[in-house]
């Protein structure tokens, strides 16, 4: 669905729209016995959500033959050394991959947030010929599947821009390979432009007017009035873009062909190729790819929910 960025974070569309409508309190009233049942079922739901993660943690600490031969719910012995083994089991140590993921997702996030906010501001606050048409085009582009764009974008980045490949032309660490991932993000992402435009239109125009009377130019208005009001929405865009790009697999798979440039997702993929039956290390590596996302989520989940709800935009 989403476009422009390679790989694309299409799934991020839904939660922003949905979270926006959730009020913190429930509405349905229930009797006593059904409340007990509700707690039990909610408990089961949480177990269903968390058990696979526990399974990953538990098996990451077992010995290789234990993990591949039997099922237990508590490790026979704690093999903490699995983590150091895993850490050094690929071409480069895992922190290289984590840094790559972090830098790539971070730059994409900065680019997306900055460009989407500015473009949305342009669409929401300025009148110009063809505005509605261009906006319709934005919405239209969200409908083009990435599958169609994958190869032509590749052709363009590789053949026209020469961003990619490897070898001696660019030296050892070919950082050009990151460009197809990062540069498009600086030109906005259709869904988030749409979302932020709706937000900005919700900000009272009187504030702009008052600032204008004080002699503020458009950029100053953007900086002093729009941005502070937009902060909850930007927080949501930031977190969702970061998570979406961190989790991206296809984009990096196509472009990041130097092992030194691999993201954590690519490292995991090569882990399967190399250690297809060594489950304890696979689980340890999986945990490494999930942990940063879990941390981001648990820090920011409240902010997303509240922030997006407050601004009262519905998809």
């Amino acid at each position: 669905m989403a476009l422009q960025g390679t790989g694309a974070p299409p799934r991020t569309a839904a939660p922003v729209a949905a979270l926006s409508a959730i009020s913190p309190k429930g509405t349905e009233r229930t009797g006593h016995s059904s409340r007990v049942i509700a707690y039990v079922v909610v408990g089961l739901l949480c177990v269903f959500s968390l058990f696979p993660l526990y399974w990953m943690l538990e098996n990451s600490l077992r010995s290789e033959s234990d993990a591949s031969n039997s099922v237990t719910f508590w490790p026979e012995e704690f093999h903490w050394s699995n983590y150091s083994t895993m850490w050094n089991s690929l071409t480069y140590p895992f922190h290289i991959f984590l840094i790559n993921s972090f830098v790539m997702a971070g730059l994409v996030t900065i680019g997306t947030v900055a460009s989407c906010a500015l473009v949305a501001y342009g669409f929401a606050r300025f009148r110009f010929a063809g505005r509605e048409f261009l906006f319709a085009v934005i919405i239209g582009t969200t409908m083009i599947p990435y599958a169609v764009m994958m190869i032509p974008q590749y052709a363009m980045f590789i053949n026209v821009f020469h961003w990619g490949g490897g070898g001696s032309a660019f030296g050892y660490h070919n950082l050009y390979q990151f460009l197809p991932q990062i540069v498009p993000a600086f030109f906005g992402s259709p869904f988030f432009i749409f979302l932020l435009r709706q937000f900005i239109r919700g900000i009272p125009y009187d504030l702009d007017e008052a600032a204008k009377v004080d002699g503020a130019g458009p950029l100053r208005i953007f900086w002093t009035i729009i941005l502070p009001e937009l902060r909850p929405a930007l927080a949501a865009v930031t977190v969702l873009t970061f998570i979406g790009k961190w989790n991206d697999f296809l984009g990096p798979l196509i472009y990041l062909t130097d092992a030194h440039n691999w993201t954590i997702e690519l490292a995991l993929n090569s882990f399967i190729g190399r250690y297809s039956t060594i489950f304890n290390l696979q689980m340890a590596a999986s945990l490494m790819s999930m942990l940063p996302i879990m941390i981001v989520y648990f820090i920011a989940s409240r902010q997303i929910i509240e922030g997006v709800t407050l601004s009262g935009v519905k998809g």
Binding site: T91, I158, G167, T257, L266
Partner: peptide
Amino acid sequence: QWDQGNYDTDLKTKIGSGNAPD
């Protein structure tokens, strides 16, 4: 340059992009 686990795919992409190792 060294690759383990994904050598063949990465090599193919490098050659495909016209910029493979010597």
